[in-house]
């Protein structure tokens, strides 16, 4: 199977502090993978590098076999059409209604008819449980509803690669469970590749079969999520158990 995402010795630093230091990641097509790590270790940064919102300092990124970081503007735009991104603070356009927000990726891709756009937006909003809120503005929604609108906007164009930055942050356990369920159903239907960044390690472990852990710019763990407890790396073990004593 071809790799959906492939990073080879990816480097990025701000000032003198290296955030990513020769990171190698490979995600097969249709794989679901979680990314964990302490605060400010470059998890969000890695997602932004993968969709070309930030430029890397060194290394190579391939999305569906196409080189992303050295490509021209048109090629980058072409690659982005296959990527859906959920931003950490939702990034809903606050001057647009919920309907226009969700329809935006379809309208911009220009390939679908107005009738079809309406139908897809309706379907997606129903899937995230937000039928009836189409005409509201993001400012009128609660935190969980905003997150679900943002999710709908990431899913609506059915991209082959989905990047989620903290899809469950600030949500109650019931909503969190619903969101994971929704992502699972979406994945079963579209076989999209998903990369999830989350600080909720326990919830993420139950959902994803494979986990990556970033620490001090290096990838410290890359393997099945049920084996992470017995990792040989002391840092990883301490982080996952939430122990007070250890190298962290």
């Amino acid at each position: 199977m071809t790799a959906m995402v492939e990073c080879r010795s990816l480097c990025k630093s701000f000032g003198v502090r290296p955030l990513l230091d020769r990171v190698n990641v490979r995600l097969a097509s249709g794989e679901i993978c979680g990314l964990i790590g302490s605060a400010a270790t470059g998890k969000s940064l890695l997602l932004k590098l993968l969709c070309g919102l930030q430029a890397s300092d060194g290394g190579e990124i391939f999305i569906a076999g196409r080189r992303l970081d050295a490509s021209s503007k048109e090629e980058l735009q072409q690659s982005r059409k296959h990527i859906g991104m959920l931003f950490q603070n939702n990034a809903l356009f606050d001057f647009m209604t919920v309907r226009d927000n969700v329809a935006f990726p379809l309208v911009r891709s220009g390939a679908t008819s107005a009738e079809e756009i309406r139908e897809r937006v309706h379907q997606t909003l129903r899937a995230v449980g937000l039928s009836g809120s189409e005409e509201k503005l993001p400012a009128e929604l609660s935190g969980g509803m905003k997150k679900r609108v943002a999710l709908a906007r990431a899913l609506v164009a059915r991209p082959a690669l989905l990047l989620f930055d903290e899809p469950t942050a600030g949500l109650d356990p019931v909503t969190t469970a619903r969101i994971y369920e929704l992502l699972g159903a979406e994945q079963a239907r579209t076989r999209a590749t998903m990369l999830l960044v989350s600080s909720d390690v326990d919830g993420l472990r139950r959902f994803v079969p494979r986990l990556l852990m970033l620490h001090a710019g290096r990838l410290r763990y890359d393997g099945p999520s049920d084996k992470i407890d017995s990792s040989e790396d002391e840092v990883v073990r301490q982080f996952v158990r939430g122990a007070d004593e250890g190298p962290l």
Partner: peptide, 19 residues
Amino acid sequence: ELGSMVVTDQIDALAMNNV
């Protein structure tokens, strides 16, 4: 308006849709 769009990643979300 634009400043709060930048800090809430809305500009990045525009870029993701090639705007």
